[in-house]
């Protein structure tokens, strides 16, 4: 039996416990082989800190974001209304998620359909835990003193004005944060937003993730930090395309913290 626990809302409800926060895992966090590692890293951090959390487990479904952005409002609302029924059924008050697309949809778009929750992105949650002294950085990890660049997710940054929390998390590590030329409000998309993740790009002279990866590599960073499953995929593919996967790693913020903590 492992030391880490992942209670579901159903289990919590059965035992009469109301968790402080629901961890919304998302489809990438549940199914994508690479991104499952991020889910595990975040769960380990939550366990270590002793946060009273739960997940929906098999009761979770896609928020509907890619369907809505691809134009299918019916499908989006079918997903959203069903999810809201589940969330409201458990009387969920606070949601944390590692996916900026889930974050944006639940935070901004579910209220119009009757789902009103306090929603925060895991970068903000991690920043809060660091600020509160609940995560104390060990600072001796593999990136100590090395350059890390942060790639802004559009749905976190421009869409919701979260620019500083992920940077605060990186800076809490003993690393050198270097910025790409296009960052914060001017950050360049990885190419996956607006349901682009689920189809081939239109004809052009270059793929967007290659353009962005070139910019990230130009900083000389040893790691590219991201806060979004789609960005993680796109940037990892870009680094592989440039044959730099042995020199430059792409990590989610939760993974960087988990590594520092030896989790």
């Amino acid at each position: 039996m492992s030391e880490y626990k992942v209670p579901t809302m159903a289990e919590k409800a059965a035992s009469g416990d109301a968790p402080e926060v629901l961890f919304w895992v998302g489809c990438a966090g549940s199914f994508d082989d690479r991104y499952k590692a991020v889910t595990l890293a975040f769960v380990k951090i939550l366990n270590q800190v002793g946060v009273n959390f739960a997940v929906l487990g098999p009761e979770e479904a896609c928020t509907g974001d890619p369907a809505r952005r691809a134009g299918n409002e019916f499908l989006f609302q079918m997903q959203a209304v069903a999810n809201i029924q589940v969330l409201n059924g458990y009387d969920v008050k606070k949601v944390v998620t590692a996916c900026p697309h889930c974050f944006n949809t639940i935070k901004n778009e579910y209220p119009a359909l009757g789902g009103k929750y306090e929603v925060i992105h895991h970068s903000e949650f991690l920043q809060q835990l660091i600020d509160a002294g609940k995560i104390v950085m060990k600072g001796g990890g593999e990136f100590k003193g090395k350059k890390i660049t942060f790639h802004d997710s559009c749905f976190l940054g421009r869409a919701n004005n979260v620019y500083e929390a992920p940077r605060a998390v990186i800076q809490a590590l003993d690393v050198e944060l270097v910025e790409m030329k296009r960052c914060r409000t001017k950050g360049l998309c990885c190419g996956a937003g607006g349901a682009q993740m689920f189809k081939e790009p239109e004809p052009g002279k270059k793929d967007i993730n290659i353009e962005r990866t070139e910019e990230a590599l130009a900083t000389g960073a040893k790691a590219i930090a991201v806060g979004c499953p789609f960005c993680l995929t796109m940037m990892s593919d870009g680094v592989k395309n440039k044959e730099k996967e042995h020199e430059v790693q792409v990590y989610d913020l939760a993974e960087l913290i988990a590594k520092d903590q030896g989790l």
Partner: peptide
């Protein structure tokens, strides 16, 4: 899910 996975496998992670 936007990918073709069995919903019952969602919690397998």
């Amino acid at each position: 899910s936007p990918w073709k996975f069995a919903p019952t496998d969602r919690f397998n992670w």
